[in-house]
Write a protein that binds this DNA or RNA. Structure first.
Lengths: 143, 143
DNA sequence: CAATACTTGACAATATCAGTAAGGTATTTA
DNA sequence: TAAATACCTTACTGATATTGTCAAGTATTG
């Protein structure tokens, strides 16, 4: 249960590659495609969204590519996934524009909301820098 | 992102209704259907799985219905969702029978694994009793 | 024995996902 | 200034999973 879409997964991996070029070296789609084994076409869709959201900047022409807009440790996984898949919304009534007819007598509403917050909180603490250095601590979050 | 299927949602709500009858009063599908606004046919599929998994027992004949197999505070939300949707597996390579070709150089593998564990840990601590009394503490999990 | 309730399996409409394809636009370097 | 490089946009399609419905049973009890 609770699958992450490939767009989200690939997006994070693409951002990881771009982050490695920070702050100077633009990373091309082709490089990302080869290193992360994702088609150029598909990556274009993904990077487009991320660029429009301001997470990355593009540099055209030979020697061009993509650059991170801010420092790797200022980009959380939550931000990336939010742009590609929207916010965590375990049920449709928890979506930004969703309304729940049953809210008041819905015993599970609070449960899903709490879990969603828990997930967001986790993803907010992990950044691209953590991914690069590999030093995010699993145990810190489990109690 | 990260949607829960209706089967999982309805399943938890159905278990909540059944839990309210614990330990004596069998709860019929029809009652659940009316109180939780889910079709009888669909509930049959869901309750079937839960019964086969041993989470509930069925009593046939007039006055029959479904009963919880164990105490409400011994049934976690994780158990219910596990039966209906399988274990948390954010990516296909984290599924029970999945193998990841890229594991070794996959920077995100550990990340998704950690998040999955975090989610499972949360769901393991919430029980049907918590749902009934409404006293699960959100703040306890967020740091 | 009739009412009530559970059991099973087949099936279909939708929606979402995952990915491809084609053609266009912009920029830089030689 | 032209060729190379790279990004941009839109449309489309096949696969898969979800979300149920429907029909025809079987079992139990009052």
């Amino acid at each position: 249960m609770l699958k992450l879409s490939t767009k989200g997964q690939y997006g994070v991996r693409a951002m990881f590659e771009i982050a490695k070029g920070y702050p100077e070296k633009p990373v091309t789609i082709k490089e990302i495609s080869e290193k992360q084994d994702v088609s150029v076409s598909y990556l274009e869709q993904i990077l487009n969204k991320l660029r429009r959201a301001g997470l990355i900047k593009s540099v055209k022409g030979p020697g061009g590519g993509y650059l991170l807009s801010k420092e790797p440790d200022a980009v959380s996984i939550a931000e990336i996934l939010n742009e590609l898949e929207g916010p965590v919304a375990l049920t449709s009534c928890l979506e930004p524009d969703g309304r729940c007819v049953r809210v008041d007598n819905c015993v599970t509403h609070l449960l899903w909301k709490a879990l969603g917050q828990q997930i967001e909180a986790f993803l907010n603490t992990i950044t691209l820098k953590n991914l690069i250095t590999g030093d995010f601590n699993i145990k810190a979050f489990i109690r």
